[in-house]
């Protein structure tokens, strides 16, 4: 569940996470969607970040289908599958979407691409959801399976931590190492990598 803005961001600067995304962060997000797409042999992948000022989700990186025109597109954060994932903080897999006329219409209007299957996981760091990582039309072997949902969730958490580090930098790092937020983040990254290795071993 989302209540707060990006950590370390002053209230007046919380209107848009987009403004805080420099070239390096954009490259990071693009890398994340490229890897997510590769892991699941998917037709497309995308990252949507929350804009709290407008209650919208914004496409910030896209790989594959829609790459040319989706970045920057916005839609209401409380609606659709990505909206539910962002609001609930839960990952979700849905399949058989092409025979779902309601989904086709809504999605086609905004993205011009109608997937048959969609996996979505929150970009969650601590108790904060920063956005949503979506994978569209993963390979059939990677669909509708709980271990794959676990893998996507774990990868999304890793990406969220990296995003957090990229956006917030290391303001206020203590010289003596005490209460060092960067150290905490490095520790979390290490833990997530360890979790990912264990999960991949189990697959």
């Amino acid at each position: 569940m989302i209540e707060s803005t990006y950590p370390h961001a002053p209230a007046s600067a919380s209107a848009s996470a987009d403004a805080r995304l420099g070239p390096a962060t954009a490259e990071l997000l693009q890398s994340v969607v490229n890897v997510a797409r590769a892991i699941f042999a998917a037709e497309a992948g995308s990252i949507l970040l929350l804009d709290r000022a407008t209650d919208e989700l914004v496409f910030r990186a896209v790989s594959g289908q829609g790459q040319d025109f989706l970045v920057g597109r916005r839609f209401p954060a409380g609606q659709g599958i990505a909206g539910w994932v962002a609001a609930s903080g839960e990952p979700l897999i849905v399949d058989d979407l092409r025979r779902n006329t309601a989904f086709d219409r809504l999605l086609a209007e905004s993205t011009r691409y109608v997937p048959d299957a969609l996996m979505a996981a929150p970009l969650i760091h601590g108790a904060e959801v920063l956005g949503v990582l979506e994978v569209l039309d993963p390979a059939p072997a990677a669909r509708a399976s709980l271990p794959e949902l676990d893998l996507l969730s774990l990868f999304a958490r890793q990406a969220a931590t990296a995003l957090q580090v990229a956006v917030s930098g290391c303001p206020g790092c203590a010289a003596d190492g005490r209460d060092d937020p960067a150290a905490d983040k490095r520790q979390e990254v290490a833990r997530l990598l360890s979790d990912a290795r264990r999960l991949l071993d189990d697959l």
Binding site: D95, A102, A144
Partner: peptide
């Protein structure tokens, strides 16, 4: 069941 009187397949504790 899903919106629009349709159905889909999905996974999760939900």
């Amino acid at each position: 069941a899903w919106i629009g009187g349709t159905s889909i397949r999905t996974s999760g504790n939900s």
